[in-house]
Design a protein around this nucleic acid. Structure first.
Lengths: 237, 237
DNA sequence: GCTCGTATGATTGTCAACAATCCGCGGAAC
DNA sequence: GTTCCGCGGATTGTTGACAATCATACGAGC
């Protein structure tokens, strides 16, 4: 013991199903598969270089995560998120990140501040470079680090799943145009509130941050609940 | 349209993997498989009457839900929950159910009250009959209905997963001996707070309810963080 | 002209066999 | 006596093929 080498253990310790699931998750997250598209098994299997067995296992995993929708003898489709889903994602994120905030304030504020500061620096760099994709990545990472700093594995897992859905929302309707400066400023406030241990400000800013995001996504978006055109085929039911 | 027939649609619309997953989830929940036991694929497949293919898909689903732990070329094992996991489950449950509480109070209190009252009646019946298993089932159902009444699919899904883990905790260490009367009384307070729209009392009672539960489970339990005997082989890492 | 039944093509669901990997045990070397 | 090496048994990971099911297009009947 006493080795300070950070996690060098996993040689190829992950099952191929997990690898395939990660690959697919990232592709869906980045919007490579438009919502509602059918994922043919044979094509994906050949393109990924695996057989249909592991691919199906990975699919089931993504179904359990809510990214895919399975219809028996029909196929698997990437879930298309309606307006209700966008609100729901942020409702759930608010629940998770609020709990994370309380845990952070009750725990190790210092290390949390460090992690958030690092993520914030990435955001600032992306904003300065005007790189929208990198900014979205950094935003994603900030919130991931935020929940991870709380130290609760289950909150972290739930947050990660919700962040993927968030990216799906953003990728679906390509309006990733929040004023970069404002976005960075909001996150800086969160970091500062963690650093200062200001519970009220942290929670209030967090909830406002979520409400802003959902408003920014849905505001003027062409999805207004009732399947406007052919791009959003089905109601969420 | 206008048919008021409630969901008669699904004939056998569910994939066998989903059915198998449900079956396994219930078995794990009820403690039929002690924590840490290895789930041999061939044996389970034969006992369930399916082949290894669908079984493996169901397994991956349970892995994604955090009920199983997969070691490559080693097998799948039911996760053994340590003390930290018990605390974490209740941390996550508090986060979810608190958010659900706020949503209920901001939404349709009346229908929520009805659902909770029905679940409460089941609890009272079980308590009166002295049936511990039925009481645990009713407790489970109460909290399920509570989150479901909030109307958020994602909160509901997360709550269901956490409730399964809760049952695992209870089944693992067979101390399901909370005073039945107290348990019913606590839930009645929750119902009343929903009915009266008393936010502070609802949230406070909820958090106290969670803290009580984790204390009741861990208090005097033989798992005291550091792998006391052979029943808890590995640290959670 | 419209509707219904049927054939076809493709896709998914399922299965049984093959290959790769790991654990436990016995024996040899030091 | 201890350590290392190798082998047998068992289990998982993967593959390809077979069977069931569904969507689509075409033609017959009214």
């Amino acid at each position: 013991m006493g080795l300070d080498l950070e996690d060098l253990e996993p040689v190829s310790r992950r099952s191929t199903a997990a690898i395939v699931a990660d690959r697919l998750r990232q592709a869906i997250m980045r919007g490579s598969f438009p919502p509602g598209t059918q994922l043919g098994e044979v094509e994906l299997a050949t393109r990924l270089g695996v057989s249909r067995g592991p691919l199906r296992e990975a699919m089931q995993r993504l179904v359990a995560e809510g990214l895919l929708r399975s219809e028996r003898h029909r196929g698997l489709f990437v879930r298309d998120l309606a307006a209700d889903d966008v609100r729901d994602v942020y409702i759930a994120r608010t629940a998770v990140e609020r709990a994370a905030a309380l845990l952070i304030l009750a725990g190790d504020r210092e290390s949390a501040t460090l992690r958030l500061t690092a993520a914030l620096a990435t955001m600032e760099a992306a904003a300065a470079a005007g790189d929208a994709v990198a900014l979205a990545d950094a935003d994603h990472r900030f919130h991931h680090e935020f929940v991870a700093a709380a130290g609760s594995p289950r909150l972290r897992r739930m947050a990660d799943a919700l962040l993927v859905e968030t990216r799906m929302c953003l990728a679906a309707l390509q309006r990733t145009a929040p004023p970069a400066a404002d976005l960075v400023a909001e996150h800086r406030i969160l970091r500062d509130a963690v650093r200062d241990g200001d519970t009220d400000r942290l929670v209030a800013t967090l909830e406002a941050h979520m409400a802003d995001a959902v408003a920014r996504i849905l505001d003027g978006a062409d999805l207004s609940e009732g399947a406007p055109d052919g791009n959003l085929p089905a109601l969420p039911a």
